[in-house]
Design a binder for these strands. Structure first.
Lengths: 243, 243, 243, 243
DNA sequence: AATGAATGAGACTTCATTCAT
DNA sequence: GATGAATGAAGTCTCATTCAT
């Protein structure tokens, strides 16, 4: 059986690392819950279900997690903690701003390929809980996906316009935020629809996702100058109005 | 009071068609439900809530809708029926394939601007129900957003590569599907997060959405230089502000 | 079986007065609850107990009362509504202020004699809920025991000092409030201890209560000699009966 | 921080008597419990609350007290042990019977002024537990408030009628029991209502309490003779039995 | 003496739904 | 077509308490 997505959260079971009993129990619960959430959808899983799946008694469960939100939130936290580190590493590899952005998006594509269940979980979480929990808690968590938080996005665009890797007509205060929101939205939608997309469109979700990344990067990157220093690039016959 | 989003669904009250009492009651229920769904989220609304909001008795409710899914599905159907027609109209206006795509995405941007509640509703529906109902029912519904269904997307890309409005290196069987999924994903994410996005990023959701559309279209369109070195049309003279 | 104290609330079952089914059920619940509260103490009765005693199903119960507080509060309301009317009538009979006070205290003694269960209930309520519910709700209810609310007490003392029936050294803003609080406190304590007092002291609770009333009235009334040495007012010719 | 009312219970920390660890722990528990009882009301405090407040583990708690009743009872016992001694001392100071009674009542007024929390605790205890525990245990405890128990009350009344400080028409087997019950009832009611009384009536609880004491003493004391040696006012021919 | 862990028992409440009138 | 009433079936959570270490 494939590894539960909760247990991937950087806590290694290998080696002689000793889990205390409490930690082990906690993990059993989280793993069981994560599996159920993925199988049935977060809202269709009850505490009773998790309890049954874990094999402990209800009252014991409540010694570990005081309610379903607690479980959900914990899983989410582990997920993000894990992602944040790896996203950072991915971006550091890039040289130009465009490279960095590409690395970040590629990182997300890898997430979709390797852990669609994780993405699906977060997608559900977003759709269901986004409105019920304080913004801060939610967005602060999501912000970790980028190294210094979303605030660094502006800098990235500016950097790219300076180093010539990005189009000169981007808006530092806007573009990257738009891109990241769109890519996250796309990623989650594809993860949520899962195999159905393949059935319908004949393409696996990660192929679709990598295509949209390609298009977006094409849209972001500097055209003429980036390739050749001399500014030709006449064309673009009639940029149509959008809005 | 602004019109409920359900009652806007293309059902005309004009003409001498008289709603029977039954139809009026049904509408009251759907309107009340739609409002509640938007206020609290689909999963946080119970039949009892809808009943209370409508002012009828529980037992009467069941004369109209046999359960919550029935209500949800009906609202969704009205929403899509409405959208399909208008999306089609929007696209017909375009001349080149790029124009048509732009018109379709623009149509979605308008949806986000004018009816965020509708988009939010569909987003929730997707995240929560996608997995519980047969694919056919769901995707068939969504397919209506494009005139001939998603199948026509391949043709559109081919058309664009032929008429020179799109990059020549696109994949007819892939690109448009990728774009549409991403744009839907982005639209729904933004609608779901709503005002929070503005608080966090300082930009309204529709501004973000139009920016990503712009980037995607930039990524799709044929770039003169990339294709041919000859320099006409020196630069995008005045990218207009989007918002 | 003796009449339930809840059902004494001025709602007559006799005659052709028709209770709707709902009212009858509601009464059954209140009666059952009141009996249990008196037998075991309010805090030792659970909703489940009341449900079992009433013979309906749990879910039906919640159609009538949404929780235990609701039941408790309803019973209390009926009790006070009933008392308020009768206390008023009792006081109106008196001529001098002392008579009126005596009538009020006597009314309370009757309550203790005839409905110790009611008093006991209120005593428990007080001790347990006084701190958990908003003052207004509670005191406004209690205030009904006196015709125009406790505010009229000052007037009563002033009236008595004017008509010569009360000691001249009383404090209108204080004395009657002190008296009423003490008498209520005494009444509730005796009701709570119930038969135990008799076992311990060899006197029934109402005998003890009437004795303290007598002492208090002796303490309140004008004493001829104390005021003026000349002996007019030859003795309270008609110590009024209390009971 | 002010001393917990439980730890004031006459347990001396002086001398070289070392509390064993066990005693210290026990005290911590009792203090924490007493504070919680006063803050929330006895019935709203769970073992878990006490445990949390004390900082020990649940299982450790049960090494000291086998259940909540045990804790409650222990606190109550300390309270009474303390009171009994001081009540005795207070009464011994008096010369006439009236003086002794006044001293006793004054002692209770002091209790209300200085330790309303203690009184409140006992009031709650009374209302809630009186019915659940054997009479003997309860009343025997309360009896300690008077030196030789309530049995001595008869003697006190007789003494007062003999020394001329009390009215001659009192009932030795009744009056003092009535008075003490009333005063305890009043004291507890006032303590329970606490600040609310002041808000409602504009007078602090101890002012109200002292006023009722004054009235009762006025009602008890011999009238004519006490003021002037000459005995006129024979009167009051035959105080009839009341009840 | 302390404690980590577990748990039986049950209380409270909600909800969708049915049914007879 | 409307409604009053009832309810089965769950779900969530609390609490006092035990027991082995």
């Amino acid at each position: 059986m494939k590894q539960s997505f909760a247990s991937a959260s950087g806590i290694s079971k290998t080696g002689r690392t000793y889990f205390s009993h409490r930690q082990r129990q906690s993990r059993r619960i989280l793993d069981a819950a994560a599996r159920l959430f993925d199988e049935r959808g977060i809202d269709c899983v009850t505490m009773a279900d998790i309890i049954a799946a874990t094999g402990i008694r209800a009252s014991t469960m409540y010694q570990y997690f005081s309610n379903k939100d607690d479980v959900v939130w914990t899983i989410l936290g582990e997920l993000f903690a894990d992602s944040a580190v790896r996203a950072k590493q991915a971006m550091e590899a890039g040289t130009s701003a465009l490279d960095k952005i590409a690395a970040l998006l590629e990182f997300m594509a890898d997430g979709l390929t390797n852990d669609p269940a994780k993405v699906r979980f977060v997608a559900q979480f977003d759709a269901m809980y986004a409105r019920h929990w304080p913004v801060e808690r939610l967005l602060s968590l999501e912000a970790r996906i980028s190294p210094q938080g979303f605030e660094s996005f502006s800098a990235l665009i500016r950097e790219g316009m300076a180093d010539g890797s990005l189009r000169p007509d981007l808006d530092p205060g806007l573009t990257m935020h738009a891109v990241i929101n769109a890519v996250i939205g796309a990623q989650r939608r594809l993860a949520s629809l899962g195999d159905r997309v393949e059935l319908e469109y004949g393409k696996p979700i990660d192929v679709l996702f990598r295509e949209i990344i390609r298009i977006i990067l094409l849209g972001l990157r500097a055209t003429g100058p980036a390739v050749a220093p001399n500014i030709r690039r006449p064309s673009q016959p009639k940029r149509k109005r959008h809005s």
